[in-house]
Design a protein around this nucleic acid. Structure first.
Lengths: 189, 189
DNA sequence: AGCGGATATGCAACAAAGTGCATATTTACA
DNA sequence: TGTAAATATGCACTTTGTTGCATATCCGCT
């Protein structure tokens, strides 16, 4: 959005490393499950980015245990300060880029049944994601009324994910109903 | 997300051309205002994409009026059918990629006041966007209870935008309150 | 001992998206 | 009549993301 400091995957990686050293693989797992509600990346991207970050001195390899071949990366002071700089920087919100909205907008091109099938498919998918996030929420934050400041920092992004998927399900249901309704009124009597 | 047919900007352009021929500049304007709630693109991206689409025979230049230098593009049959194919194709939802969520997660690095300032800034921004969308909604759909099928196709994506920004405002407010609360409890006695 | 699946890492090529720079015309208005 | 803002178009470069490929280890099961 703005020209100064953008990037993002690198920041997502650095931020995740705040919780302690991890391997590229573990990072990938987290990105595609735990924090997948606001960031995703393939393992290839992550390994490439880790290599770049290491080259820039923002992360470093931990001494291996001798046992495994797993490479664990840790934040360096430079990485920590780069991340801090980025967090301080005010920034603009991005856009949602949901192709289903585009499909609905171009929906005149396909039979209503096709569009409705897609919407039902989406609804189920979002419902499934919602369930996953809600389980995470329950498991990790059993008492959301009494969280410390630091706990809030972890709770709030997850909460955003829950809200987002709740909305998605809700919108899909509304869309299905409106379209079915309008179709019946037009084709009907 | 999936390997078959992805792309997206091209489809957003083709879909917009369904409403009639437009210039690249007008397309840019629409992307960054009217339908900005689900897609955005810079003029450079749009001109490049239009050139590609023209090369592929999916759009064509309209005869100029002789008066202006403005180039207006129209959908061709090939473009229409390419778009149809894409709309038919089932697809997976993407991820939200909100950097403010990342910033909150890494919020331990900055003073609470900084984080709270950013959240208030975001709240105001989202409130402003919300207002824009709501005005669009009022102006274009005065009676949302009685829309034709085709009108629904335009109404529903806008409605998604309204819901999204409503959520954003709501989440920001909750976040501000939770963080302020937790901070007071911890710093106080 | 062999097999399959999860863990773990990485390169190379390519496609898509974003940023910076450059420029010409038109329109309103002071 | 100058000038500033909006309209209008585009190239070149850089960064990000995707896809296909290649490999090696570890763990549990049979």
């Amino acid at each position: 959005m703005q020209g100064v400091i953008a990037l993002a995957l690198s920041h997502a990686i650095l931020a995740t490393l705040l919780d302690g050293p991890v391997s590229g693989y573990a990072l990938m797992k987290r990105f595609n499950s735990a924090i997948g509600y606001f960031w995703q990346a393939s393992h290839q991207q992550i390994y490439r980015e880790l290599a770049t970050l290491e080259h820039q001195g923002q992360v470093e390899r931990m001494p291996t245990d001798g046992q495994t071949t797993t490479i664990r990366y840790a934040l360096t002071e430079a990485g920590r300060s780069a991340l801090t700089t980025w967090v301080m920087q005010p920034s603009e919100p991005g856009v949602m880029r949901e192709d289903v909205l585009l499909k609905v907008r171009a929906g005149q091109l396909v039979p209503p049944a096709t569009l409705l099938a897609e919407l039902r498919h989406r609804r189920d998918l979002h419902a499934k994601r919602l369930l996953t996030y809600q389980e995470l929420q329950l498991r990790n934050f059993s008492d959301p009324e009494h969280l410390s400041y630091e706990q809030c920092l972890h709770y709030l992004p997850l909460m955003r994910g829950v809200l987002f998927e709740t909305e998605n399900v809700h919108w899909c249901e509304q869309a299905i109903q409106m379209l079915e309704n309008a179709r019946q009124l037009q084709s009907g009597p």
